[in-house]
Design a protein around this nucleic acid. Sequence first.
DNA 1: CGGCTGATGATCT
DNA 2: GATCATCAGCCGG
Length: 206
Amino acid sequence: MPDSGSRFRLRALRRAELPEGTIGLARFLIGKWVVHDVDGIRLSGRIVETEAYPVGDAACHAFRGRTARNGSLFLERGHAYVYFNYGMHFLLNVSSESSGRGCGVLLRALEPRDGIAAMQRRRGATRVQDLARGPGRLAQALGVDLRHDGVDLCAGGALRLAVSNEKTGRIGRSVRIGLSREAHRVLRFFERGNPHVSGPKRLRET
DNA sequence: CGGCTGATGATCT
DNA sequence: GATCATCAGCCGG
């Protein structure tokens, strides 16, 4: 498996390393990696933007209880919750608390690392800066879809979370993007100054 | 850069 | 029938 990211001493994240609260996990995941080995190619990137959807948040898909769609949010932290949004995009989340508590962290943007040419083929020729800038683009670049809903991201499978020895930049926070409910809550996290972060400029500075 | 619009389909009321 | 954790394209400043 190609592994240009190995120059950063990448290793898989264990579940025990993940903070147990949703908001803490959203912050923790900034600077960590998502890796997807698919069709003999490694696709990966550093997470540079997340949003927390904690228990009791009216914007969280699990707010009204468990349904066929949102079941993965109720898995122990570190599992993928993937859903289909606006009739055309898949969005990748990480379940964030103990089994039975429905909540998660949306992965909103990556700084692409391994498999950039392959990700560009999946997305259509796009500048690297826009390859995984936004949650729909992120899933498309990584080849993530409903087949990955419920996958354990800490189990060493093809799709997984990882950490490198790089330093993470200063972390900013803001309100979340694209919501009508609970729109005022400051639950979005991002690496400040990173050009791969999505959203309007005013939400990339604080 | 910011702002707007249409595309497109699952989910829930 | 309304809503929706989006995106690409287009327009104006």
